[in-house]
Nucleic acid binder design. Structure first.
Lengths: 153, 153
DNA sequence: TATTGTTATACTCTATAACTATA
DNA sequence: TATAGTTATAGAGTATAACAATA
């Protein structure tokens, strides 16, 4: 967007013309807003965004090592410990010692974890619906995801 | 270890099918990547994203109170203190006591701050060019900014 | 020696409460 | 009373180093 001073500026308002065009700034604001909404949706389940991602990944990749799950999410293995400890303590996940490599922990969902994830997926679906409505339809959502992917390349 | 083989998936890779569609997750990853690149571009100037935004805002809105600048950026006034202290200590900004309200601090760029911002804008321009290239052109960048705006509504 | 999980630690960002000086 | 700036503090999230057990 080219730098055109907004004509309808109240004299008391701060002029954000230039900052508002910074991609990183807009991304940060949008990400904070979306995470806030996510957390609000998941208040009853008391689940953070990273925790939901971990549950989904373990469900789809049972038996993977902690490091593998952490790596995919960009979480350092040292920081992953507290996260998985929390899910373990809630009885949603469990660590099993594989006989072939007793250094590692194979991650699995417990039956309670499977049931919990079923509920969480419904909440996620409602959350995604809100996002799609804000964006103006599924096509717009797909555009956004595609553009975000390009930024990460 | 049972492998649910998705077509085109290396048997050793973690299946991220479901997580990769979460808007919040994609947003977070993209935001982290963009901030990393921003920080890399601004390494020589030793300037954080929030600090650059503050300099731009003060340049465009000289004499504004700390709280006004902080509010626009979604920064709590308590956390803004350390940020503006840093810019002050580097001689880039200064706080003036207005005669009409001696509680507040009117923010201004110093001449050194103006010169510094001139250099910073060149770096920002180069950074933005990289983003636009990744996205596939200015039109795609505008699309992204519009979509991010919609998420914040 | 290298890897996995873990602990300890530190730094950034963010959030809240309480203080001060002014209004 | 209320506001602007400040301080102190606490909580996330993230980063690195080092250690024990295992490969």
């Amino acid at each position: 967007m080219t730098e055109i001073a907004e004509p309808g500026l109240e004299f008391d308002q701060v002029d954000t013309t230039e900052t508002s065009d910074i991609i990183g700034y807009k991304l940060r604001r949008a990400q904070l807003m979306v995470f806030q909404r996510f957390i609000a949706f998941f208040e009853d389940l008391d689940l953070r965004p990273a925790e939901y991602s971990v549950l989904v990944l373990i469900a789809r990749n049972p038996g993977r090592k902690q490091t593998e799950i952490a790596d995919v999410l960009g979480i350092k293995r040292a920081n992953f410990v507290a996260l998985i400890n929390g899910l373990d303590a809630r009885g949603l996940t469990e660590r099993r010692k594989p006989a072939n490599d007793r250094r590692s922990h194979a991650l699995h969902l417990t039956p309670a974890g499977e049931a919990f994830l079923k509920r969480a997926r419904k909440v996620q679906s409602a959350f995604e619906t809100e996002c799609i409505e804000k964006l103006g339809g599924e096509h717009a959502r797909d555009d956004l995801l595609r553009l975000l992917d390009k930024l990460c390349a």
